[in-house]
């Protein structure tokens, strides 16, 4: 019995020391991690809808969706698109919609800028796990990605791939990713339209 007690004590002691050290490291790193996350969201937001307000003021005001009673899942060309959040640009230029949907490999999170005239002002992918060299190009900072995303500027909620008779050129070898990005853009515009009634 004595032996078991000793073993437990040793294990507990080591766990406690490790947990303590981790706590200390966490205190140091928590600030930078949070700062990075906020910074990243803001950056993605300002990519799709730049806001001109005096420095230091809040640029995007989150819209509380609950009292609106709208369904946050939009069916767009047969694909389900989840609306995660909507923020209003502080200078009334429009809205930024955060969408979540499945791409070819996994979940994609994308922000879509929607103007007051219900056209898209830009899209930016913040999280994805698409295939490198194919679907991942949709999020890439290289020309191929920028050109793909720029096609969405100015489109309406009826946006479609060229294959379906629309205006968007799909990424080569990544029709599924391209189609889901197109659907999500349409869904974001649709949601803002419903929201504005």
């Amino acid at each position: 019995m004595n032996k078991i007690l000793k073993l437990t004590l040793v294990l507990f002691l080591i766990c406690a020391i490790v947990a303590g050290v981790l706590g200390a490291v966490d205190m140091v790193t928590r600030g930078p991690i949070n700062a990075y996350q906020t910074n990243k969201t803001n950056e993605a937001f300002s990519k799709v809808m730049p806001v001109h307000v005096p420095e230091g003021e809040q640029q995007y005001i989150p819209v509380d969706l609950k009292p609106l009673g709208l369904s946050t899942t939009i069916n767009s060309n047969g694909q389900k698109i989840k609306i995660l959040s909507v923020s209003k640009a502080a200078d009334d230029a429009g809205y930024v919609v955060e969408t979540e949907f499945s791409g070819a490999q996994g979940t994609i999170v994308m922000v879509v800028g929607v103007s007051n005239r219900l056209t898209c002002t830009g899209v930016s992918i913040t999280k994805h796990s698409e295939t490198a060299g194919l679907g991942a190009n949709a999020a890439s900072a290289a020309d191929v990605g920028v050109n793909f995303r720029n096609q969405f500027i100015g489109v309406s909620k009826f946006v479609q791939l060229k294959k379906a008779g629309g205006e968007i050129d799909a990424l080569s070898g990544a029709t599924i990713t391209s189609r889901s990005v197109t659907n999500a853009t349409a869904a974001a515009i649709e949601f803002v339209e419903q929201m504005l009634g």
Binding site: C15, A19, L22, G23, V25, D26
Partner: peptide, 10 residues
């Protein structure tokens, strides 16, 4: 939440 990995493996 930072103890996740440790807790899960245990």
């Amino acid at each position: 939440a930072f103890l996740q990995t440790l807790a899960f493996i245990l």
